[in-house]
């Protein structure tokens, strides 16, 4: 993409980006109880990066976030498959999830789910896919 010269956008994005990403992470982790989840969280994170792409050019963004999104997609898929197949080792059918309450330092009692790991896979895949698509098209001259 062409180098743009938009001071307002560039300044605003520095602040906003942080909030968007933070909010997307919140939305992702809260997904089991409140509206949200891997899909929305992932899309929102991707949206934030797209915003970054629009403000700066692709090369700058690649410098800030040197992530290979195709590999990110693969990692996400592995997370999802791994969580699903993990249940086989406990002699329960594929994709059986487990949950339990765990006492953690600082956070106090927290309910932990393997479903969240699965959702993390979804999150990573969504970010990876969206960014792969946008980046490849954007890079194409």
């Amino acid at each position: 993409m062409r180098k743009t010269n938009n001071i307002i956008l560039e300044t605003a994005i520095k602040v906003l980006l942080f909030f968007i990403v933070l909010y997307s992470v919140y939305i992702f982790t809260a997904g089991h109880y409140y509206p949200g989840g891997g899909f929305i969280g992932g899309l929102m994170t991707a949206g934030a990066i797209v915003l970054l792409l629009i403000t700066y050019d692709i090369k700058t963004v690649e410098k800030i976030l040197p992530v290979n999104y195709r590999i990110l997609t693969g990692i996400g898929l592995l997370f999802a498959i791994g969580t699903s197949a993990g249940s086989l080792f406990f002699d329960v059918p594929f994709l059986t999830h487990a949950f339990g309450d765990v006492q953690l330092p600082i956070l106090g009692e927290v309910s932990l789910h393997t479903a969240t790991l699965f959702d993390l896979g979804v999150y990573l895949v969504v970010v990876g896919v969206t960014m792969t698509i946008i980046q490849t098209i954007g890079e194409d001259e």
Binding site: H32, Y34, L95, H97, F99, A115, F118, V122
Partner: peptide
């Protein structure tokens, strides 16, 4: 599934295969 958001629970747990 110990979740409260039904839609999300359906996605990641009950109908996880779809997802």
């Amino acid at each position: 599934a110990a979740g409260k958001n039904m839609v999300n629970v359906i996605l990641v747990d009950f109908r996880g295969f779809d997802t």
